[in-house]
Amino acid sequence: MSGLDVLFLAVGLLTAGSALLAVTAGRVLHAALWLVVALLGLAGCYLVLGAELVALVQLLVYVGAVVVLILVALMLTRAGGVPVVTSGGQRAGAAVVGAATTLLLGTALVGSVGRDRVELTGPDNARVAEGIFGVYVWPFELLSALLLLALVAGVAIARGGGKRS
């Protein structure tokens, strides 16, 4: 095992462990904070694999914005300290869905890559930019249009649709 392997194992275990704690935490706000650790760990995984840009965007978007929004929403609704109450059936169902997703993703990955070692060549920033703004420019722009649409629709719904008020 090389140093990188050890590092990857460490951040991988950190990610998996904190993800598990995020799911099992007793309070909603603690779950959100464990989610921060899990997302940081995931950024660490990307970094170890050489995908610097993906790791940083993960940090900027998910930790810096998405989780902050979740935390503010929890504080605004005072739901942060409420204990999480889930029935045994719900827990079992969630566990089954989680395990099935893991299995599906795992087999898809192993099926597509195989068990051979793949050399670590994280794409550099210039190649990511070429991909997004060159080869995949139409899907990228369509996605951004979709997000914009969702945003405008969200504002429209939040304002009560105009007629009812």
């Binding site: 904070l33 840009l53 940083l56 810096g64 504080m75 550099d124 920033n125």
Partner: peptide
Amino acid sequence: DVPGSLLLVLAVTSVGVIGTLMAGW
């Protein structure tokens, strides 16, 4: 001296707000 250092600075400084939120809560 890393290639994406500007993005790194912006990304890590955006994490600091979580400390303020943790303090507030």
